[in-house]
Design a protein around this nucleic acid. Sequence first.
DNA 1: GTCTATAGAGTGATAGAC
DNA 2: GTCTATCACTCTATAGAC
Lengths: 202, 202
Amino acid sequence: MNKTKRKIIETAVQLMNKNGFSNVSLKQIADEISISPGNLTYHFKLKSDLIEGIHQQMVEEMEGVIRPMGMVDLGHFQKSLLYTFQFQERYRFFFLDLVEIVRSYPKIGERHDIITTKRMNEGRALINYYIGGGWLILEPEAGRYDIIVQQIWLMNTFWLGLQAVKKDQNYTQKIVLEMIWTTLKPYFTEKGQADFLVLKQQ
Amino acid sequence: MNKTKRKIIETAVQLMNKNGFSNVSLKQIADEISISPGNLTYHFKLKSDLIEGIHQQMVEEMEGVIRPMGMVDLGHFQKSLLYTFQFQERYRFFFLDLVEIVRSYPKIGERHDIITTKRMNEGRALINYYIGGGWLILEPEAGRYDIIVQQIWLMNTFWLGLQAVKKDQNYTQKIVLEMIWTTLKPYFTEKGQADFLVLKQQ
DNA sequence: GTCTATAGAGTGATAGAC
DNA sequence: GTCTATCACTCTATAGAC
């Protein structure tokens, strides 16, 4: 990808994070970067091409990062969450306006759906690993952990919205991290409990 | 409020639920209801007046309903959730595009923030009541139930987004209800457990 | 209370010169 | 690869007749 094309995407993301997805026009992007609207059109024939280009970059960046599947301990989950938070802050607009984006660009919706399913499966696999390793208790009833994975996914996906709506209280990454761990707390074994306390002190 | 004004609000809500908040124009509303744009402007001088009018109606409707505070058993929470779901389906657009609405109309944001704080406090009070009544165990660590209230609020506020993003799986009210109850399950006393089983069979 | 007509700004997209 | 110019459209809001 050439320099201008890259710059366009970078600027678009930056403006969307600032003003919200629906409130950024092609002209605005062109002005910010000091190129002509016609030039922008040369690089991305349609607006949807630009949006899909941004999403493509997101996907690559997300996949490109080592999500260490050599699961060693509870710290893996913690690291995974912290990376996700960082990623979400970087593409804030996407998670804040997710519904509108998916509605307006169905292709992105489909791709995101696939990714989501994949992540939920990974989450479930991680829980199984933690059960096997003696950090989490056996599933107390059929489907319990599946529901917990969904809870965590929902919190992890929409917490930026919570932050945007309730501005006064500071719903920081730290709080969300706590919310997510709290979901798992009742299911810790003694070993899990002990390791979690160590993790918390770090 | 006169008939036309009422009709405008009703139609606006209906169109926004269908097409998304940002994708509904004043002209569209006027066309749908077969009045002139000028007439619409007569009833709501500015677009923001219309949006605030809709929100006003939402608030009134929400407050107008008896949220029975004579808390008797776990069924109260269930009823309260089911009413909320119904309300959310009715004003789908608001919860799906909450972030964008709050961003574009700060007045609504402020009002909504106050309501949210109030609801969270109600949630915490309900949990205290359930502890006192022997349905829930004592707080296992300081602040645990506060976090749980926030988890429930987040799930309850953004589950429609989950539904919109993951279309294939059916994230129905039933599933969300289960997600929310699952959050409380580990904290049931034996009495709580027993009463919940009865509730589930209804 | 309802209408028509229109202003004025913004949108995405196209054509063609350089 | 970048520019200018412009089209066709949509949006909110206003003015004034009925």
